[in-house]
Amino acid sequence: MKCLTYQIIKLALSLFLVFLIFNCSNESIKNDSIIVNNPLENPEDGPPAGNPDGDSAIPSDAGLEDVSNPDTIIGNGSPESCTCDAVVNAVAKGGKITFNCGTQPVTIIMDKPAKVFNNANPEVIIDGGGLVTLSGNGATRILYMNTCDANQVWTTDHCQNQDTPKLTVQNITFADGNSTSETEYSGGGAIWVRGGRFKAVNSRFFNNVCASIGPDVGGGAIRVFSQYNNLPVFITNSTFGGAEGYGNIGSNGGGISSIGVSWTIINSLFSHNKAIGNGGNPSEAGTPGGGSGGAIYNDGNTMTLSIFGTRIEENEVNSYGSSIFFVSNDHSGNIKIDNSIIQNNIGGSWYPIYPSISMHSDTPISVTNSTIE
């Protein structure tokens, strides 16, 4: 009887030990997966999304969209099931789009851009879950929306000012986009947008390029026109470049570029982006034009550039505005900078008030709790 009791106790202890080993092993896997499986946080996968020191408040309309009930899930659990065609088809249908490509980071090579159809769904949300990179492979733009492009279907008689589609990219990386072959809708190496609404949240933009010369073309990563009712594009907790070898490049606006569009940029990072045109806008005699706005290029009339909790550093230009180029043609635009650092940007001239910021001297600019040097 004593022998039987001893065997039962021994078996129980053995089972308990196996449980502890299995449970600890699983916990280790869980902890490792949190680090390894999220390229937005893993330094080995490139700079993380956003300014790590950014702590400015995020308005609800600038934050993440709910994708708990997606309309389309790209992939069946394997990396091979996540293809360019699947992305293109999902974006064409619109709605809430997520990915199921496995538990490890995946790069989807795009051989053509995914295009939003204006009559498909009033919202298009692309959520990479922190694991997905869409790559243009150095050959193509990655994402396109244009409410005034008849090929994407006109839905109103005022395409330049309509409230939908609303396009959101979140928890995702756009890399190696290239729009240099585009002629009619140039600029925007990774993303080109006109009309409706657009925002990027928890996203990264690496090594995207657009046209290298020209006085009014740009947006190595993003180019935007005509947002509904002049509401701002939101860029929240996102990174453009972020380290040497990751920067975006264009004639103007190495990171982002727009005409007549307001931006609100929150807790984000712009670094190592370049505006490589030459001669400004309008082009100086004997030059091809461009080279302004190392990180940000804003042109147009009534518009506001709001920068909160953001770092803009080590961007470079040939002409004007090594960090920011902001020209309001009718002198009705304004700039707001709070809780931000703008420093160590390289090149350019025409800085009437703050170093690295090209603007009209009478443009209202509010700077609080920030460093600009």
Rank of each mutant, 00 (worst) to 15 (best):
C3R: 14
L4V: 08
Q7R: 12
I9F: 13
S14D: 01
N23K: 11
N23L: 12
E27G: 06
I29K: 14
K30E: 02
N38F: 05
L40C: 00
G50D: 12
N51D: 08
D53Y: 05
L64R: 12
P70S: 15
I74E: 05
G75C: 06
N76G: 12
G77D: 14
P79Y: 05
D85N: 15
V88W: 07
V91M: 14
N100K: 11
C101N: 10
I108S: 13
D111P: 01
K115R: 15
I126W: 03
L131M: 15
G136W: 07
N146Y: 05
N151Q: 09
C159E: 03
K166T: 09
N178S: 08
S179K: 01
S186K: 15
G189R: 12
I191E: 02
K199T: 09
N202V: 01
N208M: 06
R223V: 05
Y228W: 07
N229Y: 00
N230S: 10
L231C: 00
I235W: 05
I235S: 01
G245I: 08
Y246W: 07
Y246T: 04
G254I: 01
S258Y: 10
I265K: 14
F270H: 06
F270S: 06
K274L: 06
P282R: 01
E284H: 11
G289V: 10
G290R: 02
A295W: 04
M303T: 00
M303G: 02
E316M: 11
S323C: 10
I341S: 04
I341K: 05
I342S: 15
Q343M: 08
Q343R: 15
Y354V: 03
I357T: 02
P364N: 07
T368D: 10
I372C: 09
